[in-house]
Design a protein around this nucleic acid. Sequence first.
DNA 1: GCCACGACGGTACCT
DNA 2: ACAGGTACCGTCGTGGCG
Length: 776
Amino acid sequence: MKLRFWLLDINDAITEKGAEIHLWGLDDTANHILVVDKSFPPYFYLLLEDKADIKEVVREIEVKKSPDAVIEEDLERKYFGKPVKAVKITCRDPNSIAKNTNSLGKINGVKASLEDDIRYSFRYLIDNDVYPCGWHEIDVDKIEEKSDNKIEEIYVAKSHPRAIQKSSTPSLRILAFSIVCYSPKGSPKPDKNPVVMISTATSNGKTMQFVSEGSNDKKVIESFIEGIQTYDPDIIVGYGSNSFEWPFLLQRSKKLGIKLKVDRQGGEPHTSVYGHVSVTGRINIDFFDLSDEIEEVKIKTLENIAEYLGATKKADEMLIDDMDIPRYWEDNSKQSILSEYSLKKASTILRVGQNLLNFSMQLSYLVGLPPDQIGAAAVGFRTESYLIRQAYKIKELIPHRIERPYFPYKGATVLEPKPGLHGKTAVLDFRSMYPNIMIAKNISPDTYLESGEKNPYLGVYVAPEMGYSFRKSPPGFYNKVLSTLIEARDDIRDKLKNTDPKKTEYRVLDSRQRAVKIITNAVYGYAGWIGARWYVREVAEATAAWGRYTIAHAIDLAEKEGLEVIYGDTDSLFVLFDSEKIDRFIEDVQRDLGLEISANEVYERIFFTEAKKRYAGIFTDGRLDIVGLEVARGDWSEAAKRVQEGILEIILKGKIIQKATSFVRQYILDLREGKIPFSDLIIWKTLTRDVSEYVVKVPHAEAAKRLLREGWEVARGDKIGFVIVKGRGKLHERAVPYSIATYSEIDLAFYEEQQIIPAASRILSIFNVPIESLKP
DNA sequence: GCCACGACGGTACCT
DNA sequence: ACAGGTACCGTCGTGGCG
């Protein structure tokens, strides 16, 4: 029979009989199904020397290969654009891939093994053009046998799946969860401390809560498992769950002698690629992983993300700090507040999840990585997964990732800004400059002409400055990929124009165009990443060089039209507004450089200091836009940022310096009088390494050490919030975690001198306001 | 021993 | 673990200072 299904999750199972692929999905009628495909053998390639005698090498392979391996000559493959002699070795057992790679790789005439490092389940997706979060059709037989699997039907595949065009998403059951652990002091430890509460919120509008009696938490976990199995969610979402909830529950369960059977085949969650936690048959997503897509939010707490997305009403109305949890749990009269908080957290996670799910699924569908992996995968790996799938389509062999030394290269041009306040200003930027340069100059790993190679008949593009050459023809790998992506995005944006923004379809399309944009923009960075499989430094270097050439010529053209350029960075020029000159300039650029430039932003007024990458402007509609300055940073106190923003608003709206200075003075008076709330004095900084690895004593690392001493776990990547307290000594000796410090200890003079005054004078010094006049 | 100064470590931003 | 360019803070070593 034919089965149509939407792919939810894929995993492999290695048995004595060979390898199996398990495809978990939903069929047309929303039944949960499992298709077992036993007929996809793993394989790898042997790349032969150019001069090797293929017949002779094959004879040698016959002798040395494992008995289950099958040889197939594959003369169609290319490697870095060049046709190569390759032999495909197919094995019944995925475990024999490594053995064969080792023994066959040494054969005379074999240059290298390739694609032996592609995961078996990913291989299946690539070769069959199967897409997670997409619809497929497959020939299957129904299996009647009863099993523990939490699904309605099990099938065995009689063909491989074929992707079909159908854009709808089936209705999926989502479960959000969050746990509360009780540890009298410090971070909870699964071998000592119980899970006292687990709260869930589900997409059918219900919530569940499991609370322990005393510290016996066995029942809490057991009821949670039962709750999951009963609701049987397709998607489980958490916030920080890959690093906290799942590992804690797993270890705690082990300690208590129970199995955390929450997946769809009676098994436990397990850690998999990119450090994500995989729950077989379901999609497990930790939305903390996706929070760095939201750059506007600096401190990525659930509350901040939720507030930004409009997924909660009052963000910190009932926020309980981790450090205060024991006090709530220990006090019977306060326990209900804790359980209310925990439930609210689960509901907030659900709403955040529902908000970000479209985007996750679109990115997953585009890149071709399962939705539970896509959030945890770094940008480089997302880009690479996309490239790998495209490479297969054009029969390009996939290079290994190899370790290389790092050599930096020259990047973009940044112009010196003209300091001060300017009138109406247009920002002209090149549309996708790097991708379009790579297309126009056919810059790609497979078109690069090594020095010494003779020029091809059809000619080369020679990059400025270094003179690297790239074949004009045929179109390179990156050229094809980027052209497709740019076209796809244009198509989606056209559709968006004719779609009602209130419709679901609009949100899906918008998520899709965002996903396409992210991958398009990441290709240049990927090309210069030493970890990239297709790393060719000259590719990134030549692209950057053409970029510098382009912006330099654009400046010339602008000046020839009589435009005054006041700033520019990489692919943008800020010019004093003149409609006619700008129109002519845009045409000049198109004619001379073959690239599109357009005025995407017009400021009514704009302000620069002497520094690059820092400015503030006001749009015609009165909106402020503050770039690079302290207001835009997450590592300055709210107090300093508020003062700076206030000044910028006053200046951009009316340039009344007097008003700005008295605003600063008033704020400082309020500070001195203790009127500025505690939370506005917290400074947040990321711990970018293990606390022991710091060579100099820096405030946030010293604050982190204090947390460690008090039993709290801090890890690389954590944001540490601290305040500066009164006393003698260096700053780092006075940095105290905000959760430990009290208001009366705070050194308000520090905030005046080292936070507010610098942030304020950054702006006001341009108008010659002396620092002394800022102090009351 | 104290101070000014510059190099350097460290973080976060911009495109 | 996508790139390079940039600003800015705090720490720390160093040389001058009788």
